[in-house]
């Protein structure tokens, strides 16, 4: 069965949506993510949608659902890389994704996740993700 891969990156889960998803694939991603948050004890989820050409009400609802469900599982969700045309269309469509945090790109998204997860629980060790950010900085 077709699946969107979910990568574990320290305390966070990373999902990069690269294909135009049919509705069932979207539902599968939602279920897989919740399962993975639980098994990996993840503090945050980052969903990169920079390759998505459109976000319709179904995908928008999925994103809002993932954010809400993650919250219940004590994880934060950040959506990154939304195309400007997608943002314009989404708001005109009537969806404002209330309660969903966004960042311009993956790097900023990871930093945002680190910030909010660290400020919320002091004992959470965010170094592994920080190392990854540093690592990326060196490469670029």
């Amino acid at each position: 069965m077709e699946r969107i891969p979910i990568l574990k990156m320290g305390d966070f889960l990373l999902v990069t949506i690269q294909v135009d998803m049919h509705d069932r694939l979207v539902m599968t991603l939602q279920d897989d993510l919740m399962e993975k948050i639980s098994t990996c004890n993840s503090a945050g989820v980052l969903i990169d949608i920079s390759a998505l050409e459109i976000v319709d009400s179904f995908i928008g609802r999925m994103i809002a659902n993932i954010a809400a469900m993650s919250r219940v599982l004590d994880a934060k969700t950040v959506v990154t890389g939304m195309q400007p045309a997608v943002a314009i269309t989404l708001v005109e469509l009537g969806l404002s994704l209330d309660g969903v945090m966004t960042a311009l790109n993956v790097e900023r998204g990871v930093k945002l996740l680190e910030k909010i997860t660290r400020s919320e629980s002091q004992y959470l060790d965010g170094t592994s993700a920080q190392e990854l950010v540093d690592d990326n900085d060196h490469k670029s």
């Binding site: 509705d23 050409e53 459109i54 976000v55 319709d56 009400s57 179904f58 195309q83 400007p84 045309a85 997608v86 314009i88 269309t89 989404l90 005109e92 469509l93």
Partner: peptide, 17 residues
């Protein structure tokens, strides 16, 4: 334009569904 493309594709997606 890219915005108009995105709008008509999104509208089509809603109505097709």
């Amino acid at each position: 334009s890219i915005v108009d493309q995105t709008k008509i594709i999104t509208a089509a997606s809603e109505l097709a569904r």
